[in-house]
Computed example of a mutant assay.
Amino acid sequence: MLHNDLICDFNLYLCEKFGYRNSCSVMQNANGFCVNISERDLDCYIRFWEYSNGVGNFPDWSIIIVRSNFKKNQEESLKDLARFFKEYMPRYGYKNLCSEGDGYGYYQTLGLRLVRKDLFGHNYALALKDLNV
């Protein structure tokens, strides 16, 4: 089920933080939905998975950062995004923050732990409540 309130909260965060209005492009899928944001200073692709079915060793109810490139202040902006997720996403049932094929090193900035290593990259995860951002 697509969470309209969650998307509204995320759009409001992006508007308040970066000035982007209604910048989330949302694609629903069988186990949740994906959000793509392509703006001049921000390029993000994030999966919101309710059920992982063991794919990528991600736990259920995970927010998976596939791509999150901020043109300015990458590390601080990524931490701010993680703080937003930690504060707001549990009310929608999400419990974990993850990164997929993490060639960008998001795991280092956010303190995520390795859950899978293979030819396609490394996947990391951590419970939102355990994030230290």
Rank of each mutant, 00 (worst) to 15 (best):
F33Q: 12
F33L: 07
F33S: 09
C34H: 13
V35W: 05
I37P: 09
I37M: 10
I37D: 15
I37Y: 11
S38D: 11
S38I: 02
E39G: 02
E39A: 02
E39T: 03
E39S: 04
R40Q: 09
R40T: 15
D41G: 00
D41R: 00
D41V: 01
L42P: 14
D43K: 04
Y45Q: 14
Y45W: 12
Y45F: 15
Y45L: 12
I46T: 08
I46S: 06
R47V: 02
R47L: 06
F48N: 09
W49M: 06
N53S: 07
N53V: 03
V55L: 14
N57R: 11
F58M: 04
F58W: 13
F58D: 12
F58R: 07
P59C: 00
P59I: 04
D60P: 10
D60A: 03
D60Y: 06
D60L: 08
D60G: 03
D60M: 08
W61A: 05
W61V: 00
S62H: 15
S62E: 15
S62Y: 14
I63R: 13
I64H: 11
I64D: 14
I65D: 09
I65W: 12
V66P: 01
R67L: 02
R67F: 03
N69I: 01
K71W: 05
K72A: 04
K72Y: 15
K72Q: 12
Q74W: 05
E75Q: 12
E75I: 00
E76L: 00
E76V: 00
L78H: 12
K79F: 01
K79Q: 13
D80Q: 06
D80H: 04
D80I: 00
L81R: 03
R83C: 08
R83H: 03
R83V: 10
F84K: 01
K86S: 08
E87K: 01
Y88V: 06
R91M: 10
Y92R: 09
Y92S: 11
G93H: 06
K95W: 03
K95I: 01
N96A: 08
N96R: 05
L97W: 09
L97F: 08
L97V: 09
C98N: 09
C98L: 06
S99N: 04
S99A: 14
E100N: 12
E100Y: 14
D102I: 08
D102T: 04
G103W: 11
G103E: 05
Y104C: 04
G105R: 13
G105E: 12
Q108L: 07
Q108A: 04
T109G: 04
T109L: 00
T109Y: 11
T109M: 01
L110N: 10
L110G: 11
G111F: 05
